[in-house]
Simulated assay, not measured.
Amino acid sequence: MSEQLTITRHEPPPDIPVELMNREETLNYIRDRYQARNAIDAELIHGLAHFAELTPPQRPGIDLGDGAAEELALELNLSPNTTAKQLHQAHTMVTRLPATVDALRTGRIDYMRAKAVHDYTTDLDDDQAAEVEKRVLDGGQCENLTKFKHALNREVIRADPVGAEERRRLAKARRDVSKWTKPDGTSSLNITLQPHEAEQAYAQIELIAKQTKKCRADVFMDLVMGKKIDRPPVTVNVVVPMTTLMGLNQEPGEISGVGPITAEYARELARHATWRRIITDPTGQVLEVSNRRFASPALKRHIQLRDRTCRQPGCTTPAERCETDHTTTYATGGTTSADNLTMFCKRHNLMRQRTNWDLVQPKPGTLVIRTPSNRTVTTTPDPYEVPPF
């Protein structure tokens, strides 16, 4: 399931130069052109796939006919390696994921979402890929690409739990640190970690940076070099169905703000964790976070687990890095309660204060947002998956 986002639709833009359009007409113009580009991308995928079929391989061990990528590269002024990848991808999508290409053609998803379906299903067999494709497309495009990828990842784990766990273990064994020097005179480290490790490390660095008023890079070096630092405790929330913890099924868990994880990974994290009970309604919306510890959570914990990310549509900042914001301000009589609190990252909290975006919360977690262009958006939090019993 994905966050429910309802946006009011308006008439197509008028047939006038874009320079003469008002704010609302310009938004309609951009939306229509974006959807038109999606249709062209689908046509291009069909064209590339057909060209690959017209140049079939003439010898064993190859998937694409000799010279096909080179001929296309001349036409498009691209490298043969790039055109070979495009031909392979297009042929796979047309033959293996036709519903995805059709969704792109009709504007239900964009090219980046279509490519994500292709990339996430690469290791699945044809039947598994078709199952994932149907379930994800039936769920809609989601409010941003990150949440669409989370939906894909969850369905891939469901379709092939054994394979997903094996791929995770292989990836874990390949964890590494790499370094390169950049043209601006600085260098970068790329550290590959397990998702919960990355969340813990980043949260620790972020908290220390706020306390010490240092940049995160300096905090990182202080930690690596063993400098004595007062380290504040950090929390990574992992949500797991009780039936998964009991080993009754292979339903995926989820690291808050990161996305779905395999059942075995979730059970590994649970073995040495503090547990809290979360009660959801039949649609997966959070109703209650336990007040007993396991550990004693504050109201903020309830809102974090309910909202999961910053509630500005399109923003994916994890709720644990956000600020608790009063929908109706405390100064004007707003209460500090679940039906008047929500999580916004610092940027979007400040945006609300500096602009004329309007926000109301008619019931806990449901936000009705009115934009400066007078468009109304109704959004509810991502529901948690309801496990089968």
Rank of each mutant, 00 (worst) to 15 (best):
T332I: 12
L104F: 04
A209S: 12
V286P: 00
I157V: 05
V286C: 05
T366C: 02
Q128E: 08
I303G: 07
V286K: 06
D102R: 14
Y265N: 08
Y265K: 14
K227Q: 03
T235H: 14
D66F: 15
N374L: 07
D281A: 09
E251N: 09
N291A: 02
N38R: 05
E3C: 11
T192D: 04
D41N: 11
T192N: 12
P60L: 15
F51A: 09
I255F: 02
E254C: 02
L341Q: 03
Q211V: 03
S337V: 01
R306H: 10
P260A: 06
R37A: 10
P313R: 03
P297V: 08
T212I: 00
F148D: 02
V101A: 13
N291F: 08
L27C: 08
T106D: 09
T309W: 11
V234H: 04
N356V: 04
E143G: 02
A42G: 10
A69H: 02
I45H: 08
A159I: 03
V18E: 14
T335Y: 02
F220K: 01
R354E: 12
Q200A: 08
L170Q: 09
G247M: 07
A151I: 00
D110H: 06
N144Y: 13
A266D: 01
L152R: 13
G284S: 06
T186C: 09
K210L: 10
L104I: 11
G253P: 00
I229Q: 05
E199V: 05
N28S: 13
P313K: 06
T26D: 14
Q35Y: 15
V234K: 01
E199Y: 09
L5R: 00
V238T: 09
A159C: 06
L27E: 11
G247N: 09
S296L: 14
P183R: 08
G226C: 08
R216D: 03
R231I: 02
P252F: 00
D160H: 03
T100V: 06
F51I: 04
H326P: 05
P383C: 07
S296M: 12
E11Y: 01
E288K: 15
K228A: 06
A99K: 03
V132H: 07
L137K: 12
T379N: 11
V377S: 14
G107A: 15
D358P: 06
N249P: 08
Q35C: 10
R158Q: 05
N249W: 10
Y29S: 12
H88D: 04
N153P: 02
D160G: 11
R231E: 10
F389G: 05
Y34N: 11
L76C: 13
R105C: 06
Q353V: 07
T26I: 06
T26C: 14
P383V: 07
M21D: 04
I205M: 06
M1T: 11
N374G: 00
D119T: 05
H326N: 03
D230P: 13
V162G: 04
R347W: 11
L76K: 10
L74M: 10
L170C: 13
T92Q: 09
I40N: 05
M246E: 04
N153M: 12
N190L: 06
A114N: 01
T6Y: 09
T122V: 14
P282S: 15
R108Y: 00
T122Q: 03
R354W: 10
D281E: 04
D110Q: 15
